[in-house]
């Protein structure tokens, strides 16, 4: 029998713990396939952060280190500096990266640490039950912004990719999503490019992925995908913000 499709060797056999309709699973698959296809699994160390993806250390089939909330980029720095030939990535949510861990992330980028950050932005604190995130949209109702996010009271959604595009040490930076097949393919290409750049020693690479949280958004999986496509992308446009391999002058 001809095998047309099989699970990536970059994933373990552990069943994923994510909620129905959450797109963490797709993003895991893309990361795992990219590492496998580039032949990097044996020399990769992944850093699991705190949040819904905390258990990613059980899912990725490579050496994995779980770390304190927000500190993934610093932990990754410690690994990469002592294992310059290794491939090091972090897998972080918006609370972990854009709120408590923003200093560590900015400085890792500014040093041009040769690591890859997979930044999953679903505009909400998922693991803790739906609190307001730094990336929550204006008007978005969460358990800690029950009347909707208000710019004067809560601040505006933070634009991580836009901020990081100003940092010299960044070699590759793209914002993608996985709300349809075309976006999934594009996201895979971006993740693969990020790891390729790391392999080539080009510097800091980050792929931001707009992701869903149907449970905490109070939406069906279909409506959640639609909300990413129609609402989130208006605030967080999908594009390549920086690519050291291409000469661009915007």
């Amino acid at each position: 029998m001809d095998i047309k499709y099989q699970k990536s060797k970059g994933l373990t056999d552990k069943p994923l713990s994510y909620c129905p309709g959450c797109t963490h699973g797709i993003i895991h698959k893309l990361v795992a396939e990219s590492l496998e296809e580039l032949g990097l699994l044996d020399r990769t160390v992944g850093v699991a952060s705190v949040g819904c993806s905390v258990f990613s250390y059980e899912f990725f089939n490579c050496d994995m280190i779980q770390c304190p909330h927000g500190r993934a980029a610093a932990v990754a720095t410690g690994i990469k500096r002592t294992h310059p030939d290794g491939i090091v990535f972090t897998y972080q949510g918006d609370g972990d990266l854009a709120s408590i861990g923003i200093a560590e992330t900015i400085h890792a980028a500014n040093r041009g640490e040769n690591i890859t950050i997979i930044f999953v932005n679903n505009a909400v604190y998922g693991m803790t039950g739906g609190q307001m995130a730094p990336t929550s949209l204006i008007g978005q109702k969460t358990t800690t912004s029950p009347m909707g996010r208000d710019a004067h009271m809560h601040g505006n959604p933070i634009h991580i990719a836009e901020m990081f595009s100003q940092i010299d040490g960044v070699a590759y930076l793209e914002r993608c999503s996985v709300f349809n097949l075309r976006q999934v393919r594009n996201a895979k290409a971006a993740i693969k490019k990020a790891f390729t750049y790391q392999k080539e020693g080009r510097g800091f690479t980050m792929v931001e992925l707009l992701s869903t949280c149907p449970v905490n958004w109070g939406k069906t999986p279909q409506d959640a995908l639609k909300w990413v496509e129609e609402d989130m992308t208006k605030v967080f446009p999908l594009k390549v913000f920086k690519d050291a391999g291409v000469e661009t002058h915007e």
Binding site: V47, I65, R71, A74, V75, H83, A103, E104
Partner: peptide, 17 residues
């Protein structure tokens, strides 16, 4: 490091590896 917090976490990463 950029802070003591980052420094001890870099230590964590190097020790873990």
């Amino acid at each position: 490091a950029e802070s003591e917090v980052a420094a001890i976490n870099m230590v964590y990463g190097a020790a873990a590896s």
